[in-house]
Design a protein around this nucleic acid. Structure first.
Length: 529
RNA sequence: GGUUUCGUGGCCGAGUGGUUAGGCAGCGGUCUGCAAAACCGUCCACAGCGGUUCGACUCCGCUCGAAACCUCCA
C-alpha cells in the first residue's frame, strides 16, 4: 500500500496513483532538445528530472519505453518578419547544410547528457525522419474537419475544436482571453482565428528546410512532431508525457488538441512538468548575459562562475530540489552541493572499508560498483526484479533490515513514491551518512547485516535511482591504493618515533597532489579531492 | 492585463493544521603532536495584513514581491 507510486498530473493538478495502462509496460514521452545550439542548464533539468522518473520506473520493475525526441526541423524564429526556421537560419549563417548543424548539436547534446549520467532513452526519434507520419496526421485532422487549408498552409481550427472540446484545459487558458490577448502578427492573416496554429507551413523561397506534401512544399508546424512520434512509438494512449513547464502552452495544449482531433481521443494519461531554472534569482536568458551552457559549468569558463562545477555536482544540485520547484543557481549554492556530495561519497567509501573489515555472513552482494552509464539500451530494458502485476513492489530486502537502517530504506521509498521527492531521499541518505560516520568513530555500532543493508540502500538510491556516481578515476585504483597503503605505513612509523618532520612532509606533499590524509583513532586513511 | 507556479533561517532547499527536514556556512565541545576529517551540541524561519480554528508556517481572502507562459526558447 505505502509503496505505491504517486505522481503529480498537471492535467488534474493533483497527485494521482500511477496505474499504467498496460502493466507491466510503461510508456513515457519527453520533449527533447531543439538542436541548434550548445546544451545549457535548461536542457539539464528536464533531462535529469525524467531520467529520475525513468530510473525509478525501471527500479520498480516496469518495462519502460522512454521516447525523447530530437527536434531537428526547428521552430519558427521570434522576429516574425521572416518566419524562419532556427536551424535554417543558423545554417545560412554558417554556410552549412541544416542537417550538419543538427547533427553537430545533437552529438554535443548526447555527450553532455552522458557526462551528467543521464541514461539514453529507449528511442530518440528525429522530427526530420518522421515527415510521413506528420503529413499523415495533418491529413487525419483535415479529414476530421478540425483544420483548413489556406494558400498551401494548413491550420488547426481552434475555434471549431473548442465548440466540442476544451482547448486550454491543461494550461488553464480561456479561449476568449486568447482571442483578445493574442497579438496580431504579420503574415498571419491566413489564420481564421488568432489562436489557430499551423499544422503545415508553405515554405517561402528562402527556406532551405522543406519537404513535399499534398498541400505545398513546406515544413510541419511546431507541435506536430511530438504528437506524431509519441503515438507512433507508444500507441494512441500512453502513460506519461513530460517536459518543461514552459511547454505547457501552447505546445502541450496543442498536442492534446491534435491527438483528440486526429485519433478521436486524448493520448496522454499523466502530464508531468518540471519547473524552470533561475540564476541568482533571475531568469536565464541570452540578453541578460547570464546564459551559462554546460561546457562553461564543467570548465568554470564563465564570468559568473567562481570555479568549475563537475557534472555530478550539477546533477546532485538539481536533485536536491524537487522537480516542480524553481531552482536557483548561485556559486554559494553549488559549492554547498559539491561539499555535500563529497561528504556523501566519502561516507560510502567508509562503509565499504567497514564491510571489508567486518564481513557479514554470506549474503549475496549485488552491484558492488555503481554501474557506468549503460551504453545502449534496448527498447525494453530488463528490469532488476521480477514483475508483480500492476504495482510492483520494491526488490526483496536483504536480511538484517530492522530498526533505524530499515527505516531509512522505507523513508527513501516513501519519498520517491511521493511524486519523486529526491530532496527527501537525499536527506534520508544523509542520515545514513551520520550513522556510518558515527559507527566509524566507534560512537555507535552497526551489525554486519546492518552494514550490508546500508550499502544496499546507497547502491540502490544514490547510484541506481538518483544516478550519481563517483567521479574519481578508477583506472589505476588498485595500484594507487597499494602505494597509498605503503606511504601511510611509512608515515605511521615516523609518527610513532615522533619524527614529525617526515610525517608532515608526507602529508603536505600528498596534499599538494590533492590527496588528503585523514588521521583517526584507528590509523590513517586518505581521499582525493 | 490574463494563465500558471511560488515567496521558509546567512545561502540553497524539503515538509506539516499542534511534534527535528537535510546540505553548506557560523558558534561551542570531543578527538588530534599540530591540523584536516569525523562526531556531539547549538544559534538563525516560515513575505505582510486580515479571516477560519482550541491552535496555522501549514486552510481561505487581500496586499506586496518573484518566475514561467500568453511571442522563439527547457
Amino acid at each position: 500500500m505505502e509503496n505505491q507510486l504517486n505522481l503529480y498530473n498537471t492535467l488534474s493538478r493533483k497527485k494521482e496513483l500511477f496505474e499504467p495502462i498496460n502493466p507491466p509496460f510503461a510508456g513515457m514521452y519527453v520533449c527533447g532538445p531543439t538542436v541548434y545550439g550548445d546544451p545549457h542548464l535548461g536542457h539539464a533539468r528536464p533531462a535529469i528530472t525524467f531520467d529520475l522518473v525513468f530510473r525509478y520506473l525501471l527500479h520498480l520493475g516496469y518495462k519502460v519505453r522512454y521516447v525523447r525526441n530530437i527536434t531537428d526541423v526547428g521552430h519558427l524564429v521570434a522576429d516574425l518578419d521572416e518566419g524562419d526556421d532556427k536551424i535554417a537560419v543558423k545554417a545560412r549563417l554558417e554556410q552549412l547544410e541544416p542537417m550538419e548543424i543538427a547533427q553537430y548539436y545533437a552529438d554535443r547534446y548526447f555527450i553532455f547528457m552522458d557526462s551528467l549520467n543521464v541514461k539514453r532513452p529507449s528511442i530518440e526519434p528525429r522530427a526530420s525522419g518522421h515527415m510521413i507520419e506528420q503529413i499523415r496526421m495533418v491529413g487525419q485532422i483535415l479529414d476530421a474537419g478540425y483544420a483548413y487549408v489556406e494558400n498551401g498552409s494548413v491550420y488547426f481550427d481552434v475555434e471549431k475544436y473548442s465548440k466540442t472540446f476544451e482547448y486550454g484545459k491543461l494550461s488553464g487558458r480561456v479561449l476568449d482571453d486568447l482571442m483578445t490577448n493574442t497579438r496580431a502578427l504579420e503574415g498571419q492573416d491566413e489564420k481564421h482565428h488568432p489562436a489557430d496554429f499551423a499544422l503545415w507551413k508553405k515554405a517561402q523561397p528562402e527556406h532551405i528546410m522543406r519537404w513535399p506534401s499534398p498541400w505545398s512544399e513546406g515544413f510541419p508546424g511546431w507541435h506536430l512532431e511530438c504528437s506524431a512520434m509519441s503515438t507512433k512509438y507508444l500507441g494512441n494512449y500512453f502513460d506519461i508525457h513530460g517536459g518543461g513547464m514552459d511547454l505547457l502552452f501552447p505546445h502541450h495544449e496543442s498536442e492534446i488538441a491534435q491527438c483528440q482531433a486526429a485519433i478521436g481521443h486524448e493520448s496522454v494519461k499523466y502530464w508531468m512538468h518540471n519547473n524552470m531554472v533561475t540564476i541568482q534569482g533571475q531568469k536565464m536568458g541570452k540578453s541578460l548575459g547570464n546564459f551559462i551552457n554546460l561546457e562553461e559549468f564543467f570548465t568554470g569558463s564563465h564570468r559568473l562562475l567562481d570555479q568549475a562545477y563537475s557534472p555530478m555536482t550539477i546533477r546532485f544540485f538539481i536533485l536536491q530540489a524537487h522537480y516542480r520547484s524553481t531552482l536557483d543557481f548561485s556559486n554559494e549554492a553549488l559549492q554547498a552541493a559539491e561539499k555535500g556530495l563529497k561528504k556523501m561519497l566519502a561516507a560510502y567509501e567508509t562503509l565499504g572499508r567497514m564491510i571489508a573489515v567486518n564481513p557479514s555472513p554470506p549474503t549475496p552482494l549485488k552491484d558492488i560498483n555503481p554501474s557506468p552509464p549503460t551504453p545502449l539500451q534496448g527498447t525494453n530494458p530488463s528490469p532488476p526484479t521480477p514483475l508483480q502485476g500492476t504495482n510492483p513492489s520494491p526488490p526483496t530486502p536483504l536480511p538484517g533490515g530492522e530498526g533505524r537502517v530499515a527505516l531509512l530504506r522505507q523513508e527513501c521509498y516513501s519519498a520517491m513514491n511521493d511524486d519523486f521527492n529526491s530532496p527527501m531521499v537525499i536527506a534520508s541518505l544523509f542520515e545514513g551518512v551520520r550513522i556510518i560516520n558515527s559507527a566509524a568513530d566507534k560512537k555507535e555500532t552497526l551489525s554486519p547485516d546492518e552494514l550490508v543493508v546500508l550499502k544496499e540502500i546507497f547502491d540502490t538510491f544514490l547510484f541506481d535511482i538518483l544516478g550519481l556516481k563517483d567521479e574519481k578515476g578508477n583506472d589505476q585504483r588498485e595500484t594507487v591504493d597499494g602505494l597509498m597503503q605503503l606511504i601511510l605505513a611509512i608515515r605511521q612509523k615516523s609518527r610513532e618515533t615522533k619524527d614529525w618532520g617526515t610525517s608532515d612532509q608526507i602529508r603536505d606533499t600528498l596534499q599538494k597532489l590533492h590527496i588528503t590524509v585523514k588521521d583517526g583513532k584507528e590509523g590513517s586513511t586518505w581521499e582525493t579531492l
